[in-house]
Design a protein around this nucleic acid. Sequence first.
DNA 1: CGAATTTTTGATTTATCTCAACAACCGTGG
DNA 2: CCACGGTTGTTGAGATAAATCAAAAATTCG
Lengths: 251, 251
Amino acid sequence: MPDTSSCQFEQRPRRLVMGTAGLQADFCKMCNVRPSSVCSAIENEDIGRLAEAAVETIVTPGRCFIEEGEPATDFFNVTSGTVKLFKALPDGRRQITGFAGPGHFLGLAVSDRYAFGAEAVDTVRLCRFSRERMRVLLDDFPRMERRLLEEASNELVAAQNQMLLLGRKTARERVASFLLDQANHGELNSEGQLHLPMTRGDIADYLGLTIETVSRTLSWMRAQGMIDVGKGYAITILAQERLESLAEGED
Amino acid sequence: MPDTSSCQFEQRPRRLVMGTAGLQADFCKMCNVRPSSVCSAIENEDIGRLAEAAVETIVTPGRCFIEEGEPATDFFNVTSGTVKLFKALPDGRRQITGFAGPGHFLGLAVSDRYAFGAEAVDTVRLCRFSRERMRVLLDDFPRMERRLLEEASNELVAAQNQMLLLGRKTARERVASFLLDQANHGELNSEGQLHLPMTRGDIADYLGLTIETVSRTLSWMRAQGMIDVGKGYAITILAQERLESLAEGED
DNA sequence: CGAATTTTTGATTTATCTCAACAACCGTGG
DNA sequence: CCACGGTTGTTGAGATAAATCAAAAATTCG
């Protein structure tokens, strides 16, 4: 059977060397994503337990750190940067199933193998937990399990929205939905600009389109005065309401 | 704002009258889907607690019992029949996000409103739990929460596969994947026939295609000798391996 | 049986993809 | 600072898979 990993695709090393030392309690206590992550399920008094199970890991852009089909040895919590999650077909076609930003938990797979791959979009900082230590934490802190269920439920809702997008929306509706999602998930800079960390290729693989169609659609939106496409990956939303009705197919 | 519910679409009554009496402990003890459902998290000795929280509900074919956007007052466990879960756009385009059979749990939504609609495909039997009683059960039986997380993780894996299908597979690959999924999820009758409970329209809305494309693709598969399309909704898989390689795009 | 619904099949259109060329941008090193 | 090669993005022309429009055939159900 040929190796079909998308990581190879990127022509990067397959395995990632990561540190093994646990963290100090203060590291978690100070963590700026804890409030919005599963880690919030553990109180300050017990935070040492969490910290000693975690290993901080930095992943450089383009590096693949979860490979579809490999044994699911670790769970991850994103503390900064953006991760793309994807599935691929043997011939290389690829679907990005989601982008995970700070606070997102990765590795929710029942089976003992990852059902998807994960790759750093920009520089990504992660807290890594081994399967065994995670299991112990969940046994000792049931609140964490509840928090994880919330996280999973949120992801399911997002997945259902994405299925509607992929199955039934036009290219324009897809791009409009994407821009609004990105704008809602927060990262607007000083002057209303949305900084997209991912390439056109990533956007295309996320929306089930080709690079060319994404590019053409953004150009069309610019021509319509809905957005302004700046240098690099900066986009300004000029007509949010028009984009919103477009995203819901009301045009 | 116009009412855009998919239930109205089906021209069926909007609200469903359901019984309110709890069940006897034996009902749950005897239940044939308990082993494969979240209810397996509760032991025989405590099964009375589960039974008294449940209300048995029967839904006739085509009836909508969860409406997207309505307050999420209840959770459901399917005991027999098939349910379609869907999301819709204002203009009526519809995406079926999944089919739920016996043992499936419905209602995993974080928000206090349903993020999707649910409609009976054939005659469906459900156990209904109110949000409040479910909350109490989860507080008293943490194993149930863990079981629910497993369920959610399984659904996430299925959702990721469906995103790959909708975003990147051709019509033939989609139909092949669908037939194999249906065959794996069990219901083969006495002579290897797969009985699909859903219409061509449902299949189309699930696969992000039109009715005509689904029909044409099934005809093509029949002409290729891959399947036999019997009366009603019966299909026999004649060349499973060809379908499998087709489903993964290896053709 | 006969009306209504669903499915199949055919002809044509179209949104998006593919192929191709060019332009903009990025980092590197002279 | 600018020249350079490589990568990424844009735009154009043409091809195509699937959608749409239309009608016939099969099935369901009263």
